[in-house]
Design a protein around this nucleic acid. Sequence first.
DNA 1: TATGGATAGTTGAAAAAGTCAACGATTTAT
DNA 2: ATAAATCGTTGACTTTTTCAACTATCCATA
Lengths: 159, 159
Amino acid sequence: MATEVVEQLDNAPAEKLMAATISQDAGFLLAKLHAAGSVLNNRALAEFELKERSYSVLALANSELEPTQREMAEFLSLDPSQIVSIIDELEKRGLVMRAPGKQDRRAKIVSATAEGSALFRQAEAAARAAETAALTGLSGTEIAALKGLLRKALWGPAA
Amino acid sequence: MATEVVEQLDNAPAEKLMAATISQDAGFLLAKLHAAGSVLNNRALAEFELKERSYSVLALANSELEPTQREMAEFLSLDPSQIVSIIDELEKRGLVMRAPGKQDRRAKIVSATAEGSALFRQAEAAARAAETAALTGLSGTEIAALKGLLRKALWGPAA
DNA sequence: TATGGATAGTTGAAAAAGTCAACGATTTAT
DNA sequence: ATAAATCGTTGACTTTTTCAACTATCCATA
């Protein structure tokens, strides 16, 4: 009978450097937690042949917000040209489709197909599980507080 | 007389996508805040010909913790080979130096030179200012809370 | 209602960053 | 002694990022 090993962030190896002043730096902490989470996230999404990026795009396409590619690029902090190739691939797989903007025909509104929607729902569940694994050190209340602070930092009290 | 423009995160443009479900995703929020902060950080560090990466390495080298390259790589979530080239450059600039590990002569302990230390102190002040700018939406208490949660997520209550 | 300037998406090239396998030197285990 | 593992390094390869052009379309204004 194998011992039950809970998937966790690898904080095992000598973290003596925790004492360095840089461990008080918000930028560093954000980068490190994001890096650790990304590994779990991408691992979880691989099953659906998605990565964090394509998952995010699919998520936006699956919303009722009718986002344009430009809006996606801004929102995801990506270059517009990166959005192009992500959507190219998702479209080729039949998961999303482009439609011309209603008021602005230059813009293209990206929406998920039925297949895309279905895949997203599955991937979303996996991503949620990965997030839980990444934040295993925090209680539910703490996770909510963390998200609230992150949103407030990004968008102000309105978030 | 020009109007005083406070440097801030560009949350101005239509953030209608805030309503998307992905805005509740911790991984997304971490990535986005980190991306926004990185821009300010790198801009602030450019004056010293440093980037986030080299700044982090210099910070660790400047500590009294005598980190090896391997420990730096682990701590900064980088590949050991990436550390090599960052240190190569810092060493070429006379900011850090490599010394053989005392117990293990395979390992190399990286430490800041006097110049490196001096440069780091200046860069640190700039980085702090950049962090404040990036977290302008949060109060001092909230910033402390955010950092505390990030540290706990990474290293548990011990952090 | 033309005309000029801006903007959306796309393409392609170049630079930067990340991944990975191999190697010599050294350490650790047997 | 010998074998296996580890540290830093190199070099190849892939992926990601950045950026400048280009077409089509929109917007402002003369």
